[in-house]
């Protein structure tokens, strides 16, 4: 089985910040908007390099989404930055009417997604955002797994015309995807080849899936790990091809099992080739305060949970 190495843990939000910095130099139409979280979103360098293209909106997320929609008229490509909670639930109707229904080329960039935001607790964590965003017609939904991939995705969405939700996080996590790997929206990345189970993971759970695959290999179980960085549009062919070989699947995400990647995968299987599936996800609950590692453990979002889910799903074949 192919092994992956952590080349040095970094936060995915820094991948976004560094991608935005690069876009500032390469694409003069890129503008950035932030709702009083410039440091948290790592947007400071873009702000310093291009003060005329950086818009501090203040603590007014609804206004930020509306302004971003308006800025597209005349050719700008707005990137909005705030926490995932305030990027989605707080401004759902603004995104729905002014961005998605109006076909505006806005990039909604959301940090501190999921439970790994940590100590701030459930008011700031969101485990529903993938569902909220994937329900919107025309919205592309991306959840990247590490620093390199987040940076590559940030560059890629600028070149894609249409509304995008880009989801990333706060903690430092393993950085293992190649720095030069091109990001293709809607194209899954197969990380390992396997025959007994397909594990599709998104975001921070991709590294956990790779750790799980190593554990499973030691138990004699061959796992095919696929990184689904784009939840919508979903790479259905990659999933179906893999499941045709393995006969069962585990989905893993830092999100509620309702509305997340797992549900999209289940629909794909139901419509094509039904197969046993287990969901590694939060179980219709809010989060709470704690360290990211404690929370991932308590809410069953780590490699151990994926191993357990795999053992279960294989028995159901």
């Amino acid at each position: 089985m192919k092994k992956y190495t952590n080349t040095g843990s970094k936060d995915t939000r820094s991948g976004f910040g560094d991608g935005l910095t690069e876009l500032g130099q390469t694409n003069e139409n890129v503008v950035a908007l932030c709702a009083d979280l410039t440091g948290s979103l790592k947007m400071n360098e873009f702000k310093d390099n291009h003060p005329e293209r950086f818009f501090q909106i203040g603590i007014a997320e609804a206004n930020m989404i509306g302004i971003a929609a308006g800025m597209t008229i005349g050719g700008k490509i707005p990137f909005t930055g705030t926490f995932a909670n305030f990027s989605t639930g707080r401004v759902y109707d603004q995104i729905r009417q002014s961005v998605a229904y109006s076909d505006k080329n806005v990039k909604i960039c959301a940090s501190h997604a999921g439970i790994t935001l940590g100590e701030d607790g459930a008011t700031h964590q969101i485990l529903e955002d993938i569902g909220l965003m994937k329900m919107l017609p025309g919205m592309t939904v991306i959840n990247t797994c590490d620093y390199n991939q987040t940076k590559a995705a940030t560059l890629a969405i600028a070149a894609h015309h249409g509304p995008v939700y880009l989801r990333f996080g706060r903690p430092k996590v393993a950085n293992f995807t190649p720095a030069d790997q091109k990001f293709e929206i809607g194209k899954a990345v197969q990380l390992t080849e396997g025959t007994d189970v397909t594990i599709v993971a998104t975001g921070h759970l991709v590294w956990e899936a790779l750790q799980a695959a190593e554990t499973l290999e030691a138990e004699g179980i061959s796992a095919e790990v696929i990184n689904i960085h784009t939840i919508k549009p979903l790479d259905e062919a990659a999933i179906l091809n893999s499941v045709a070989k393995t006969g069962c699947i585990v989905t893993a995400e830092e999100h509620n099992f309702l509305g997340g990647l797992g549900e999209s995968v289940a629909r794909t299987l139901a419509l094509n080739t039904p197969a046993p599936q287990e969901f590694v996800a939060t179980q219709d609950t809010f989060g709470e305060s704690g360290t990211p590692a404690q929370l991932m453990e308590k809410y069953g979002l780590n490699a151990a949970s994926i191993v357990k889910a795999t053992q279960k799903v294989i028995k159901r074949k």
């Binding site: 989404i65 929609a69 597209t72 700008k76």
Partner: peptide, 10 residues
């Protein structure tokens, strides 16, 4: 109004 402001900024 937010949309109009965005268009004005552009």
């Amino acid at each position: 109004m937010s949309v109009a402001i965005g268009a004005a900024l552009t």
